[in-house]
Simulated assay, not measured.
Amino acid sequence: MSELLTIGVEEEFFVIDPRNRRPVNDITALLESAHGISDGSDSYSAELRTCMVESKTGVCRTLTEVRDQVGRLRSGLARAAAETGTRIAAAGTFPLADWRHQDFDTQPRTKFIVDRYARMARTHVMCACQVHVGVADPDTRIQVMNRVRPWLPLLSALSASSPFWMGEDTGYASYRSTVWQSWPMGGIPPTFGSDKEYRERMRTLVATDIIADIGQIYWDVRPGTNYDTVEFRPADACTTVDDTVLQAALCRALVLHALGELDRGAQALDVRDEVLRAAKWRAARYGLAADLLDPLAAELVPAGALIDRMLRMLRPALEDVGDWDEVIHLIDRKKVDGTSAERQRAIVTGGGTVEDVADLLVRQTVSHQQGGVRVDE
Score class of each variant (00 low, 15 high):
residue 249 A to H: 08
residue 169 D to F: 02
residue 17 D to P: 03
residue 222 R to E: 00
residue 185 M to C: 13
residue 32 E to D: 12
residue 226 N to V: 13
residue 351 G to E: 02
residue 2 S to R: 06
residue 164 F to A: 15
residue 95 P to V: 12
residue 120 M to A: 13
residue 372 G to C: 01
residue 75 S to Q: 01
residue 255 V to T: 01
residue 343 R to H: 00
residue 171 G to W: 14
residue 281 W to S: 12
residue 247 Q to G: 02
residue 192 F to T: 07
residue 263 D to R: 04
residue 92 G to T: 14
residue 330 L to M: 07
residue 230 V to T: 02
residue 281 W to V: 09
residue 252 R to K: 00
residue 251 C to P: 00
residue 67 R to V: 00
residue 217 I to M: 14
residue 360 L to V: 10
residue 263 D to V: 09
residue 23 P to D: 13
residue 144 V to G: 08
residue 311 L to W: 01
residue 178 T to P: 10
residue 332 D to Y: 03
residue 112 F to T: 03
residue 148 V to T: 01
residue 64 T to A: 05
residue 284 A to F: 07
residue 165 W to Q: 13
residue 376 D to M: 03
residue 165 W to L: 13
residue 299 E to A: 13
residue 233 R to S: 01
residue 257 H to P: 06
residue 270 D to F: 14
residue 95 P to K: 07
residue 368 H to Y: 13
residue 269 L to C: 08
residue 39 D to K: 05
residue 284 A to T: 15
residue 23 P to Y: 06
residue 128 A to F: 07
residue 108 P to Q: 10
residue 353 T to C: 07
residue 143 Q to D: 10
residue 148 V to M: 00
residue 31 L to F: 05
residue 253 A to C: 06
residue 337 D to A: 06
residue 206 V to W: 11
residue 314 L to C: 11
residue 312 R to N: 04
residue 325 D to T: 05
residue 303 A to Q: 08
residue 326 E to I: 08
residue 145 M to R: 03
residue 211 I to S: 03
residue 154 L to S: 03
residue 227 Y to M: 15
residue 154 L to A: 04
residue 308 D to W: 03
residue 62 T to C: 04
residue 174 S to K: 14
residue 367 S to E: 09
residue 247 Q to L: 08
residue 51 C to H: 13
residue 221 V to L: 11
residue 243 D to G: 11
residue 265 G to S: 09
residue 276 L to E: 03
residue 221 V to H: 06
residue 329 H to F: 14
residue 201 R to M: 14
residue 185 M to Y: 13
residue 75 S to D: 07
residue 310 M to V: 01
residue 304 G to C: 08
residue 284 A to E: 14
residue 263 D to I: 05
residue 166 M to N: 13
residue 208 T to A: 04
residue 151 W to C: 02
residue 258 A to E: 11
residue 160 A to N: 15
residue 132 H to E: 07
residue 27 I to R: 01
residue 218 Y to K: 00
residue 198 Y to K: 00
residue 317 A to L: 02
residue 329 H to A: 08
residue 320 D to I: 02
residue 290 A to Y: 09
residue 224 G to K: 04
residue 72 R to S: 05
residue 242 D to V: 07
residue 320 D to F: 03
residue 214 I to W: 10
residue 64 T to C: 00
residue 258 A to T: 07
residue 212 A to I: 09
residue 91 A to D: 14
residue 20 N to K: 15
residue 14 F to T: 05
residue 365 T to M: 01
residue 200 E to M: 05
residue 124 H to D: 13
residue 203 R to D: 11
residue 53 V to P: 03
residue 236 D to I: 09
residue 24 V to A: 06
residue 209 D to G: 11
residue 322 G to P: 13
residue 307 I to E: 10
residue 156 S to I: 10
residue 27 I to F: 03
residue 308 D to V: 00
residue 150 P to Y: 05
residue 269 L to K: 12
residue 327 V to F: 12
residue 90 A to F: 14
residue 335 K to D: 15
residue 148 V to G: 00
residue 289 A to W: 06
residue 178 T to S: 15
residue 215 G to H: 01
residue 33 S to N: 10
residue 295 P to D: 09
residue 10 E to K: 01
residue 78 A to I: 06
residue 331 I to Q: 09
residue 109 R to P: 04
residue 41 S to G: 07
residue 262 L to I: 13
residue 67 R to I: 00
residue 165 W to M: 06
residue 126 M to A: 14
residue 234 P to S: 05
residue 132 H to K: 05
residue 210 I to T: 14
